[in-house]
């Protein structure tokens, strides 16, 4: 940050009556240097890491504690029978009973590896698709609206079709996940490319970028914020589609994932099991958002001086 005395010196140098003549070189230099010091935006002072963590972690922790307290109080008041509203502790015990045998890890792994794998395939399919839709007008008018329409179609609607096409196996599940995630990622990339300021591709051209080099060095990096938003939404859609598929399509070849665990709770009328499953699905969603997408998004936006994220 410039100290006040620096600022005074600079203003003092710059203020004598403006002349149409170029100022002598020495003076121009010091004016230039002063301008650089004054004009360069200064960011806010960095906050210590522990304080940032406390600031970020405190509110949600308080919210969760309050939520559990309300739950406990409602349960204690016994408005509803036990099989409709179990105690928080009963849910915890249900969850904890799965941990020692490794069943919890196995359930999570079954679902999570499918979701991640399905998401990665979706990225590989959607990225070239998005590039082509964004850059080729014919393709855009031909299939652009269809992709947007697919994005609005709840992917659970594909489950019956996928089961009939592929049978009760992993292929059916991946089919549903892909149909859920690909349109989101594609549209994210198209939106990202559409929002690139037109001056940047022109600059690329005068700097000597050919078509491919422009895509790699200018188009894709410039579209990254929109692409990332699409990826985030694509992940949410894959996770949802996967849960819908696992919940509806239960079979011996499908393994035992979170959806199947939830469905088992319903079949046995075991409310603690049902709630534990819902909470696990929620926690995985939040964890992926916090551990993968949030830091990535923050890094990308911060590098560009964007983003009001705290």
């Amino acid at each position: 940050m410039p100290r006040p005395e620096d600022a005074e010196t600079t203003v003092g140098l710059a203020s004598p009556q403006p002349s149409p003549q170029p100022s002598p070189d020495g003076e121009l230099d010091s004016v230039g240097a002063g301008l650089d010091a004054l004009d360069a935006p200064t960011g806010p002072r960095p906050v210590p890491a522990w304080r940032r963590f406390a600031r970020a972690a405190m509110p949600p922790v308080v919210a969760i504690v309050v939520l559990i307290a309300v739950w406990q109080a409602l349960w204690a008041a016994a408005f509803w029978p036990e099989y409709k509203l179990p105690a928080p502790l009963a849910v915890w015990q249900e969850f904890w009973s799965l941990v020692p045998s490794g069943q919890a890890a196995s359930i999570l792994w079954t679902s999570l590896h499918r979701a991640v794998f399905g998401f990665l395939i979706a990225v590989v399919v959607a990225t070239p698709l998005g590039l082509v839709i964004a850059k080729v007008p014919f393709v855009r008018s031909a299939i652009g609206p269809m992709v947007t329409g697919l994005q609005n179609l709840p992917s659970v609607a594909w489950v019956p079709a996928a089961v009939l096409w592929f049978g009760l196996n992993d292929a059916a599940i991946y089919c549903v996940v892909l149909l859920g995630a690909v349109p989101s990622i594609t549209n994210g990339l198209v939106a990202g490319i559409d929002q690139i300021p037109p001056i940047l591709p022109r600059v690329g051209k005068v700097l000597g970028a050919g078509r491919l080099a422009a895509a790699r060095h200018i188009l894709l990096p410039a579209a990254l914020p929109g692409y990332l938003a699409g990826l985030k939404q694509g992940w949410a859609f894959s996770w949802r589609s996967l849960m819908a598929a696992e919940l509806i399509a239960v079979g011996p070849k499908l393994g035992f994932g979170l959806g199947a665990y939830l469905e088992q709770g319903r079949a046995l009328s075991e409310m603690p099991n049902v709630i534990a499953a819902i909470l696990l699905i929620l926690i995985v969603g939040i964890a992926v958002e916090l551990l993968a997408f949030r830091p990535l998004e923050r890094a990308v936006l911060r590098a560009r001086g964007l983003g009001g994220l705290p």
């Binding site: 970028a209 410039a222 001086g305």
Partner: peptide, 29 residues
């Protein structure tokens, strides 16, 4: 050789540092 062009806006690539921006045409070449 290819003319150098400057516009009214600096139009720097916002994701690159100043040095990387200057480097970009050399990288393209």
């Amino acid at each position: 050789s290819r003319p150098a062009v400057m516009f009214q806006e600096a139009a720097l690539m916002p994701w690159l540092t100043a040095a990387r921006n200057v480097e970009l045409p050399l990288r393209l070449a």
